[in-house]
Simulated scan of single mutants.
Amino acid sequence: MRYPDGMTSGSSFYARRLAQPGAVLAPMAGYSDAPMRQLAAEQGALWTVSEMISARGLVLGGESEKLTLGRPYPGETRRVVQLFGAEPDILAQAVTRAEAWFAPAALDLNMGCPVPKVRGRGGACLLQTPEVAYALVQAMRGATRLDVSAKIRLGWDTDRSVEIAQGLAAAGAALITVHGRTSAQRYTGEADWEAIARVAASVAVPVIGSGDVRSAEQARARLQAGVAAVMIGRGAVGNPWVFRALATGDGAAPGVRERARTALRHARLHAAFYGPDRSGLPSMRPLRKVLPQYLPEQPELRDTLVQVNTVEDVERALAPFLAPEPWAGEHEEAVAASAM
């Protein structure tokens, strides 16, 4: 059995990574794919988490090792594969298959997705029947020697997070991530970090806090809740440098050239990973919602970037910002050169 990132069968991936400073890239459907994970990892993310993968799809749905949701980019390490499901035997088989196909550093159980299409099949529904979730974690633990973790919300419509976290820890979860909202809240209101702090104080395993973290300054402040680290989702879209700031203390804001070059590199990584679409060209359509976020101070670019179809379209749109800037500092020049 192969253990990534220098692990041995007796080592804990999460414990080793949490010995370093930094933050974690959250799983985000339609966002935390291989190209985004690669950019976050290069900037120092402690680990990244895949988009959630259906356990039933892996076991019964005819998926293969070519499944893009799980497939790593070449040389990828420090990637956690997140599964969702509600049947212990299926989750156990999915863990075995995911480990063989995708070489993850650890496995995570999704207990937080509030999207209606997953109801009854896992996700946040498990917050209503936590005893099922405990059985799922136990089944996953029995199928692998890798760390198994769980990502939860505070509860279905009321806060049961302490109770649920304690049950997950007793079931063998090596780490618990808590998003500070209930499922009923979806993404409205504000994340409750006081509730996250109560969870962190109630279990012996590390707790990762999640919710409304948009900057390195906010992430550092949230560490006061007693969490082992902070997970960043929407705040990292178009902003992989937030991981650099938290990993190294280098909070230098990237200039427009570095932002533009990274946006173009994201497009090139996307094309290389996904290959041509049905029309025979690498499509940039999935990146239309991402690229404008690299250059928020150039709103005039948005109308163009949300219409790109090819890498060449992206390069043409960004061309005015790719030329060397006479005021660019040595740090920005070095980072930009290494990204090419």
Rank of each mutant, 00 (worst) to 15 (best):
L69E: 06
R121C: 07
I164M: 08
E76I: 07
E312G: 14
G142E: 12
Q293S: 11
S215E: 12
L18S: 14
S283K: 03
R2S: 06
M36R: 06
E63S: 14
L175W: 13
R261K: 10
R17Y: 12
Y3K: 09
E51A: 15
I232W: 03
A45Y: 03
A200I: 05
L281H: 15
L154D: 07
L322G: 11
T8Q: 11
A45I: 01
Q224K: 13
L83S: 03
P326Y: 01
G211D: 04
Q138A: 14
S283G: 08
V335T: 08
E332Y: 01
P282I: 00
M28D: 11
A174D: 15
P35I: 00
G211M: 02
T144P: 00
T262R: 09
Q218A: 14
E190L: 07
W327E: 13
A195M: 03
G249Y: 10
D277E: 11
D33Q: 12
L58F: 02
V306P: 04
S9R: 12
E332S: 14
Q185P: 02
E99V: 15
Q298E: 14
R153A: 02
A40M: 05
A195D: 05
R153N: 04
R56F: 01
I196A: 10
A216M: 06
A225R: 12
R78V: 04
E300G: 12
Y14D: 04
L83W: 08
K117A: 06
S54G: 08
Q218T: 10
R198L: 02
E87R: 08
L305F: 10
E312C: 07
L109C: 06
P206E: 13
R153P: 00
P4K: 14
V308L: 08
R78N: 15
K289T: 14
T304G: 07
A236M: 04
P282D: 11
K289F: 00
V314I: 06
C113D: 05
D5A: 15
R145P: 00
G44C: 02
T310D: 13
